[in-house]
Design a binder for these strands. Structure first.
Lengths: 102, 102
DNA sequence: TTTATATATCGAAATGTTTCGATATAACGA
DNA sequence: TCGTTATATCGAAACATTTCGATATATAAA
């Protein structure tokens, strides 16, 4: 588990990205997941996040990439969709580390 | 206790400011505190932080102001010196909040 | 009161972040 | 294969952060 503390803090320094991460805690209640293209996937696809945030598609795509590079989310491609879900291991490790180092 | 999460995260998003905050956990071991001007003060004055960090005086002054506005440190003026120390209450509250919201 | 010291503020250059629209790529369906 | 849909990448404008040196202010010392 390689934690880049600086990268993580910068990722969550943006309120929109923080909000996205929080919404992903409870996809069923935070996104419109009727008619899922891939019901076997637990994650949320980019388009749903675009709908929810109101940000442009390109911005959401880039933001999810920032979160993923920081290790805060994992992605899974299924056909034309990319599904994102939280990476609880990294998030927990980050909270421990920041608690110790701050 | 008014916690501005966004302000706090932005304050600690800078590695120098994070380092300063960490050094203030143990002033005796992290700063040269021989010949203290005000031994009754527990904090560390700006000049000592300048020495330790190698950053310019103006930068350190501004950075400490950012940390203080975020509530992460408290200051006390004594003569021509300003002594800074950690605000453990805010720091603890922040860690709780971020743990719950992230 | 003049001078020295500590800190704060100002102005600016370089760099980074935010966010978009346009376009490219990838995968599906007819 | 061709058009459609989902996502990724590019280029750019606006804004924010980083960091400095110069200068202002506040306090103490001579």
């Amino acid at each position: 588990m390689e934690l880049d503390l600086d990268e993580i803090i910068k990722a969550i320094a943006n309120p929109c990205r923080r909000q996205m991460l929080a919404w992903l805690k409870d996809p069923a209640n935070n996104f419109d997941l009727s008619h899922p293209a891939h019901p076997e996937c637990e994650g949320v696809c980019v388009g749903k996040i675009v709908q929810k945030t109101g940000l442009s598609q390109s911005t959401v795509s880039a933001y999810m990439d920032v979160l993923q590079r920081a290790g805060l989310v994992k992605s899974e491609r299924r056909g034309q969709w990319t599904f994102y879900k939280r990476n609880e291991e990294t998030i927990a490790a980050f909270l421990e580390t920041i608690g110790a180092k701050l």
